[in-house]
Write a protein that binds this DNA or RNA. Structure first.
Length: 432
RNA sequence: UCCUCGGUAGCUCAAUGGUAGAGCACCCGGCUGUUAACCGGGUUGUUGUAGGUUCGAGCCCUACCCGAGGAGCCA
């Protein structure tokens, strides 16, 4: 009797007859012998069909199976060092669900335009399989981490009434007779939730209508935003370090095969252990001074090339803290030790991915915050509810935002964040 | 928004201003250990669009469209 199972569980079935339900990933034929690389979503396995073993009828049914033909195979599981993955199926029976011809994405080279236009099919390739499973692992690790740490998931709304920091980067949508905007950050709502639940996180999609065309940008991406009552900047940095180490460890434990498919240098991930280097803005400036090719001027925010110079000094994520308050958001608390600086931190990932986390301790004083809103020429009415948080039981607090796709791109070692999103949205691309 | 590069077969690319090509995919045949299999044969074109220069334009010129990389801004 044949047991229905999945490719990832084959190790439990060596020596028995199993049924696998999947798709033809690739096929080679040598006369009276077919090699079918079958994929079922959980993995890939080589299936060998001998004409003598299955008879003429089944053998010929498998003769002209194109890539991505859907197929149910029955066969004996063998440990086989010659086969990719270490296991092999000696096929004893087969049922072709659909015979396919002309699947567009062949095992040869393709360009990004073609692949992105065929994203719905590209997801079936081995590389995308590995990437999406790593993405899943990162998401699961994040949620497990927060659950273990006693955080409550309180999601922020996607429709928002107004800009939270500026207006130029928002997508405007019709909201009945009014206008609304797609959220660019759930943080302000996160602060309200932290005052209600203590330690919270929100995790959902975020939208930026900036006309960015770089390998680090999407118009829609997922952002994790923890917010912690009674947290200082040091607490926020410690928390970011704990989270990143937990996520890296989880990916190394649970997605090693996928990292190998991507030919990721695993030794680089194994170095991601505490403590991470912490660098003040002024100390980062000292590094940039040694690089005449940098156009950085003291007082500016760091540009992408500057971030690369700084992060290349280290083989771990770098935390750069206490930027000049002029280049940071209105809600960040200023450093009592140096009022020209904001109590903020950016975490720069290694290997040129850039900023994966931006966070801060928030200004908790009502009058100071009102003054900041006025300085930034923001309409106070829009922030009335936010100011209430400082009227009723205000406490020191802080949090950060982590870009999921940038984090996945870094861990998986891929060049472009678009591959870290199942259906990436970019300035010139909204299909499929 | 700005700068740079590109658009030729289903895909990846080639083609001094002079008949539009190759590899892969696909189709037919061969092969009992292939890993992007291999070997033999075959099919495949509005050269992004619209003008212009020229005896003649895939190639030169102008405008536009589409895409990629980067800057700025950000995660």
């Amino acid at each position: 009797m044949s047991t229905v199972t999945t490719i990832e569980k084959l190790a439990l079935h060596v020596g028995t007859n199993v049924t696998l339900r999947g798709w033809v990933h690739n096929k080679n034929s040598k006369g009276k012998l077919h090699f079918i690389q079958l994929r079922d979503g959980t993995g890939f396995v080589q299936c060998v069909v001998f004409k003598g073993a299955v008879g003429d009828e089944i053998f010929h049914a498998l003769d002209h199976l194109g890539q991505e033909s859907s197929l149910i195979l029955e066969g004996d599981v063998k440990a086989e060092p010659r086969a990719p993955g270490g296991f092999e199926i000696s096929v004893t029976g087969a049922q072709v669900v659909q015979k396919v011809e002309g699947f567009p994405i062949t095992p040869k080279e393709h360009g990004p335009d073609f692949l992105l236009s065929n994203r719905h099919l590209w997801l079936r390739s081995k590389r995308q399989w590995a990437l999406m499973r790593i993405r899943d692992c990162v998401i699961t690790a994040i949620r497990r981490f927060y659950d273990e740490q006693g955080f409550v998931c309180i999601d922020s709304p996607v429709f928002t009434p107004a800009a939270c920091e500026g207006t130029s980067t928002l997508f405007e949508v019709q909201y009945f007779d009014d206008k609304a905007y797609l959220t660019q950050s759930g943080q302000l709502y996160g602060e309200a939730s932290a005052m209600a639940f203590g330690k919270i996180y929100c995790f959902g999609p975020t939208f930026r209508s900036e006309k960015s065309k770089t390998r680090r940008h999407l118009t829609e991406f997922w952002m994790l935003e923890p917010e912690i009552a009674y947290a200082t900047l040091d607490d926020v940095m410690q928390h970011a370090e704990d989270l990143l180490c937990y996520v890296v460890k989880s990916v190394l434990e649970r997605r090693r095969t996928e990292l190998e498919v991507l030919e990721r240098d695993i030794s680089k991930l194994e170095k991601i252990v505490p403590p991470f280097p912490r660098l003040s803005y002024d100390e980062a400036y000292e590094i940039l001074k040694e690089h005449p090719e940098s156009t950085f001027k003291y007082g500016d925010d760091f540009g992408a090339p500057d971030e690369t110079i700084i992060s290349k000094r280290f083989d771990k994520p770098v935390m750069v803290h206490r930027y000049p308050h002029e280049v940071k958001a209105f809600y960040m608390k200023r450093d009592p030790a140096d009022p020209r600086k904001a109590l903020c931190v950016d975490v720069l990932a290694p290997e040129g991915i850039g900023e994966i986390i931006g966070g801060s301790q928030r200004e908790e004083d009502l009058e100071t915050l009102r003054a900041r809103i006025a300085e930034h020429k923001l309409p106070e009415e829009a922030f009335a509810w936010y100011l209430d948080l400082r009227r009723y039981g205000t406490v020191p607090h802080g949090g950060f935002g982590l870009g999921l796709e940038r984090t996945v791109a870094w861990l998986a070692g891929v060049e472009h964040v678009r591959e870290a999103s199942p259906f990436p949205r970019m300035m010139y691309r909204i299909y499929p």
